[in-house]
């Protein structure tokens, strides 16, 4: 029992350290690679807790390795913008001059209902009010309204 408790404390400290190492970006909206790392780290951290036969280092090593790779990858993306396109993709314009782009929506596998819901979250209830709507690489939507543009 005490072993499990000590392991839990160590892994807790490790996960907190990992999140801090990845930086504040991690706590905001996630890029695809960041989402993958977050899910992996949380799954790996549970393994040594569930099974005390597994050495703790078997949990610590992959967590630290993944987090460090993620930090290095974010630096590479910053340094080489072409890498950003490969790893994170590019933002896509889904509404142009009040007209939704069906082709772009199909590529993103978004329905019209999904688009309308996203626009409503930005207080937009009519396509005519939208000059541009862009789906960002982290899945969020950015809207430039007609009134803002003029």
């Amino acid at each position: 029992m005490i072993t499990t408790l000590i392991r839990a404390v160590i892994l807790y400290i490790l996960v907190i350290f990992s999140v801090r190492l990845m930086g504040k970006r991690q706590l905001g909206e996630l890029q695809p690679s960041e989402l993958v790392i977050t899910i992996l780290v949380s799954n790996i951290a549970t393994l040594p807790l569930e099974d005390t036969d597994i050495p703790l280092i078997t949990g610590i090593t992959p967590i630290l390795a993944l987090v460090c790779f993620e930090v290095l990858m974010s630096w590479v993306i910053l340094r080489f913008p072409a890498m950003r396109k490969i790893i994170s993709g590019k933002p896509k314009i889904v509404v142009r001059g009040g007209k939704p782009d069906d082709h772009a929506l199909r590529e993103l596998r978004l329905s019209m209902d999904d688009l309308k819901a996203a626009l409503r979250s930005k207080d937009v209830f009519d396509f005519a009010d939208v000059k541009y709507a862009i789906i960002e690489t982290n899945g969020s939507i950015s809207v430039l309204k007609e009134e803002e543009n003029s």
Partner: peptide, 18 residues
Amino acid sequence: TRIKLSIAILILIFGVGF
């Protein structure tokens, strides 16, 4: 600092692993 720390941790992990 994060980059340097990450590189140091990776070197340590690989060293300990090998």
